[in-house]
Design a protein around this nucleic acid. Structure first.
Lengths: 221, 221
DNA sequence: GGAATTGTTAAATAGTCCTTAAACAGTTTT
DNA sequence: AAAACTGTTTAAGGACTATTTAACAATTCC
């Protein structure tokens, strides 16, 4: 599975684009026509597709449709300003984003980054050797599954999402239990203990969830 | 002080944007023209400005300049693709970020969050090799963390914020303990000792926190 | 419906931080 | 040089905060 499948018939532009994307840390695979694009996608898959609409042979619309029928992979359409017509507008609705040529590489990078953050980074959080799957609500450490209760998972997620920042007990409690909760704030500390027991090397000297006296708890980044 | 000042002349779009931002937990104040924007900014301030460049009357460029002359408040420019010219490029350099219409609300939110984290969530004072993180209430010396209690941190911060000036014991005490405190002023001197122990090279001959006889203490800049 | 799991509560325990007071050490005044 | 004053050090204890434990309640699973 590659990060980005770049579909662009101008091979020079395609190569340039790929270079930029690689420089930005993505893995890319280039395709200079629709047929090649689909076979590459079939074979290796992609986390995101950058798709030029104007293609010789199998055109961008067909590629877009073919991909969409299979997966929900995000697609960014590349289009020239003058090309906008109803057909294009229709497809744009299905695409996750579009960008007009001549485009600014920084804007394109921002869009890509945005999509990756929304689509991918959002359901999986990695933090050190821990991996949280937000959809499945599971946690693994070095691939080994750690069983978490709902409250523990919520707590862990909240702390990691605010790593480096001290979260007051009140903040944590309100976010997880809701500010209208009837529960005693005390219960939080108990869950902290269970959590530490599961993720800390030595629960007596917590390195990940540190307590900040008089303030709250903090996930050390 | 409001979180975000939204400057956008299309009132429908402005309202929509404000709703999104409120939903994301920010406080916002809307302005549909440049003059209003500046007067709102003058009056209430803002932690971040979302600025449409195309405005009737006082345009976005003037607003941007006026704000920049006063403060260092981060500004995100909203711009249509076709508008890009030299003038715009110039201003973009001074802005903290920009985003093109039609923009994706998630990308905008991500940008805003990023700026808030970079600019505000990390209020930092550096003094020599010391770095105080006011939010996390942590101190590091050459990157090495120094553990501080609440009182020590408050004291250190107060001294550094008034460096070069002699602070009387009374001033220090009132600021940290509150003038209505029941505690003995003596306790201050004990905290000074702990603090010196932690930050002075040789606590016997303090170089950073010097005592001014009969007057108080002073942080040497 | 019973068993297992998860969540809550309260009380006991442990630990940190702050305060106090008293002894000690300089500085200034007489 | 002694006295009076101001600042420093020390150590003990008290106030407060966090952790642990275990029993009980609630929920989920079989």
């Amino acid at each position: 599975m590659v990060d980005i499948l770049v579909v662009e018939d101008n091979s020079e532009l395609c190569a340039l684009l790929c270079d930029f994307l690689r420089a930005a840390g993505y893995t890319v695979s280039p395709a200079d026509n629709g047929t090649k694009a689909l076979s590459l996608y079939e074979k290796y898959g992609a986390r995101l597709v950058l798709l030029d609409i104007n293609l010789p042979g199998t055109d961008g619309f067909s590629v877009c449709k073919a991909i969409r029928e299979k997966d929900n992979t995000p697609i960014i359409i590349l289009t020239a300003r003058c090309e906008r017509d109803d057909k294009l507008n229709g497809i744009l609705l299905g695409a996750d984003d579009y960008i007009e040529k001549p485009y600014d590489i920084d804007i394109l990078l921002a869009k890509i980054k945005g999509i990756f953050q929304r689509r991918l980074a959002r359901d999986i959080i990695t933090e050190g050797s821990l991996v949280l799957d937000l959809n499945a609500e599971t946690v693994t450490r070095d691939g080994e599954p750690l069983s978490m209760t709902m409250k523990e998972f919520a707590l862990l997620r909240l702390l990691i999402e605010n790593k480096g920042q001290t979260m007051s007990k009140e903040q944590l409690f309100n976010k997880i239990w809701g500010s209208d909760s009837e529960s005693e704030p005390q219960t939080l500390t108990v869950h902290i203990k269970w959590l530490r027991e599961k993720i800390e090397e030595d629960p007596r000297t917590p390195k990940l969830i540190t307590t900040v006296w008089g303030r709250g708890y903090r996930w050390e980044g």
